[in-house]
Design a protein around this nucleic acid. Structure first.
Length: 700
RNA sequence: GGACGCUUAGCUCAGUUGGUAGAGCGUUGCGUUUACAUCGCAAAUGUCGGGGGUUCGAGUCCCUCAGCGUCCACCA
């Protein structure tokens, strides 16, 4: 054995052996208790980041439960990540001087498919570098035909049960990227804009002054609202305001939602371009007038401003209002929050569009019941309330996306009757009128709609025997930042489709931050590449760093210093093995079977302490306190086993006391097993020095 | 505005039934003829955010104030 443990020389070899011996391959085995985890599918469009390295928790659970005698399945899959991937790909096209509009739908789809296929291998290689015990024989992709079939069936079932509907609602639309986003995907940012105070004439006499950040939408105004308690406007309620330029007459309505103190206390209502106004319009049955189109330009209802982009139209209109003396004042430093596109950063435009929506309430109620009945346990406990609040507040879910890269919605519109029907297979004739005159919805599903089905859809494609054995899955382990976007939705759709919870336990991990506790981001330049760290210090060191000395579910500050510290620990483990191995081969003629009485006392102490250690370890592991389990062994192996016991027995062992050596070896091997789920490579490598079979064939 | 969390050694953080303050990294001193210098031994630094309460006893429970963070809602 070398005096240093060199991960670079052994990790690849060890992983290959694990794979070749099929240790990660799960089988239905009725004699064993099943334990299953579905890997949160990484996006197939990039590289792994440190967040993915947190799946180490899953590997720990899988390896631990395997060594505890269970039949374990860690199912791997990758996500097509619709909008995200198409965005990445379009950036790639832009470099070539092209855009998505240069290609036919089918060709663009094919190009992205090839791009993703290539990337999948890259990511799979990275997952192996982390040492993950994934079942490679069951790899899934969200766009596999068998998966798509299930996704279609779910959509059809939801539709048939009245839980899917098509509606013309306001959506968040990025006019630059050309797609809509669900409310969860909107990134709000603080922005300074001007607040304009504009005079509207009142038909019956006088005028009413409104405050707005968006004068260009006034062509779409269909009312003015004031607070019923506002004395200033008491006499105007019920009268008629006249919109500048176009002289449209709109009612002045009293509504309590208006804040008397803000602006002038009078609000122009533009239902087609503002979410609040849309709600007001629904309440009072006001018409919707769309004046901005999906290309981000004003339409012909705006007269001479037609064809102008939003911002230049705004400037022009302000100038014209000023010329007409209708602009009362402009407050320039008005700070507010606006919804922006998380991809390109531009301000999102609320626009009316017909889309498919899921009626969430009944589904959310059932998901909540799963938590209340403890069919699903949330860990750490404090996230339980957050999840139930999320389920309480869930609003209807827009699942239509205007991107090519995704699962195309299997909805067809009858062109003669203008109604929709759903068909999981490509229909030969219209299911409404029987003719051949129909067309498929151009849109694709929101990626989360397919990933919401991931736990059951993946297992279903493996056949009913496998499904029945491994479903519901044991644990869903993921970051707490996607509780709403993913976990809640998996519970809703999972229960809908299988009438069971998709996972018995939810275990949430925290976010990784830089050494100063700052969020890691490309723009801050503080991103640490996990693969680079593995190259330098080994996968075990990185894995231990993510688990050691942290609170479950809490954020982690990661520094290279800490990784080095863990690397040192791993080297220590190696060298303890080296010490035992060296003395194992000590000259036979010098054997002393019995210990001196002083040392036999030490041996008894060691026996007792190590038994206590294991008991405590199992307790921690069973209660998902992985950090404590690792901390316990760290403390024992370094400061008790190495610093105390070995030092006490060293002289005698060198003199050939095989009883003491045997005991040390026994305790050491036991600790290797306990450590294996955390740091699989080094434990396997040292284990191999003493034992013939893999450490994965041993049991705890 | 709402929810949750955080505030403990120079730095990053542990501390789950309340009982004499901990780890990693860093700092200082000493140590190296073979397990490990990616090491060992020793040392220093804390009114555990402020204030109040419960208790024989609180970092640990309750109240309050302050600062920070995350998620959510979002005022034209």
């Amino acid at each position: 054995m070398d005096s240093k443990y060199q991960p670079q020389l052994v990790e690849e070899k060890i992983y290959k052996e694990w794979e070749e011996k099929g240790y990660f391959k799960a089988e239905v085995n009725k004699n064993k208790e099943p334990f299953s985890i579905i890997l949160p599918p990484p996006n197939a469009n990039g590289s792994l980041h440190l967040g993915h390295a947190m799946f180490t928790y899953e590997d720990i659970m899988i390896r631990f439960n395997k060594m505890m005698g269970k039949e374990t399945l860690w199912l791997l899959g990758l996500d097509h990540a619709g909008t995200e991937t198409q965005f990445v790909f379009e950036k790639h096209l832009k470099k070539l001087g092209k855009s998505r509009y240069d290609y036919k739908r089918e060709d663009l789809y094919k190009m992205i498919w090839d791009y993703v296929a290539e990337n999948k291998n890259h990511i799979k290689g990275q997952l192996k570098r982390l040492g993950f015990a994934l079942d490679w024989s069951r790899e899934k992709f969200t766009m596999d035909p068998e998966i798509v079939k299930i996704v279609y069936k779910t959509f059809e079932d939801l539709f048939n049960q009245g839980l899917v509907y098509r509606a013309n609602k306001l959506i968040n639309y990025c006019t630059n990227c050309g797609t809509s986003f669900s409310d969860l995907e909107v990134a709000y940012v603080e922005k300074t804009d001007s607040l304009f105070y504009i005079n509207y004439q009142v038909k019956e006499g006088g005028n009413i002054e409104v405050a707005t950040t968006r004068p260009e939408t006034l062509f779409g105004d269909t009312a003015v609202i004031v607070n019923p308690k506002d004395k200033r406007y008491k006499d105007l309620i019920g009268k008629t305001a006249i919109i500048p330029f176009i002289n449209r007459e709109v009612p002045i309505i009293a509504d309590r939602t208006v804040d008397i103190k803000f602006g002038t206390g009078a609000v122009k209502v533009t239902p087609a371009h503002d979410f609040n106004d849309y709600e007001v319009a629904k309440k009072y049955n006001l018409p919707m007038v769309q004046v901005i189109e999906f290309d981000g330009k004003l339409n012909k209802l705006t007269g001479k401003y037609c064809g102008l982009r939003i911002f230049s139209a705004r400037q022009q209109i302000v100038t014209d209002l000023q010329a007409q003396g209708l602009m009362v004042k402009i407050e320039e430093d008005y700070l507010h929050r606006v919804g922006t596109c998380y991809r390109c950063g531009r301000v999102l435009e609320p626009l009316p569009k017909e889309q498919w929506f899921i009626k969430v309430k009944p589904l959310a109620d059932q998901a909540k019941e799963l938590i209340e009945k403890k069919e699903t346990v949330v860990l750490p406990k404090r996230f339980k309330k957050r999840l139930t609040t999320i389920l309480d507040d869930f609003i209807d879910w827009n699942i239509s996306r205007q991107v090519v890269w995704g699962i195309r919605i299997p909805a067809y519109r009858c062109k003669t009757k203008n109604n929709w029907f759903i068909s999981t297979d490509k229909p030969d004739k219209c299911q409404i009128c029987g003719k051949n005159d129909f067309e498929q919805d151009e849109d694709t599903f929101d990626t989360w709609f397919s990933s919401a089905q991931w736990p059951f859809a993946t297992l279903m494609t493996e056949g009913s025997e496998t499904f029945d054995y491994f479903y519901p899955t044991s644990v869903m382990e993921t970051g707490h930042d996607i509780l709403r976007a993913w976990v809640a939705r998996m519970m809703m759709i999972g229960y809908f489709s299988t009438k069971k919870t998709p996972f018995k336990t939810i275990f949430l991990h925290g976010m990784i931050r830089d050494p100063k506790g700052q969020k890691m981001s490309k723009s801050k330049g503080n991103v640490i590449d996990p693969i680079l760290m593995i190259d330098k210090y080994g996968a075990d060191a990185l894995r231990a760093t993510l688990i050691f000395g942290i609170k479950e579910g809490g954020d982690i500050s990661l520094s290279e210093q800490k990784i080095i510290g863990m690397r040192n620990f791993i080297n220590k483990i190696w060298n303890i093995g080296r010490f035992i191995e060296m003395n194992n081969q000590v000259k036979i003629q010098n054997l002393k079977v019995k210990s001196e009485s002083k040392n036999s006392k030490v041996l008894k102490e060691l026996e007792k302490e190590s038994k206590k250690e294991k008991k405590q370890y199992l307790k921690y592991m069973d209660s998902y306190q992985f950090s404590k389990a690792l901390g316990l062994i760290y403390e024992f192996i370094w400061h008790r086993f190495a610093d105390y016991y070995i030092e006490q027995l060293k002289d005698e062992i060198i003199n050939g006391n095989i009883e003491a050596l045997g005991k040390l070896k026994e305790v050491y091997l036991e600790n290797l097993k306990m450590l294996h789920p955390f740091i699989p490579f080094v434990t396997e490598e040292v284990w191999g020095v003493f034992e013939k079979k893999s450490i994965l064939e041993s049991s705890l």
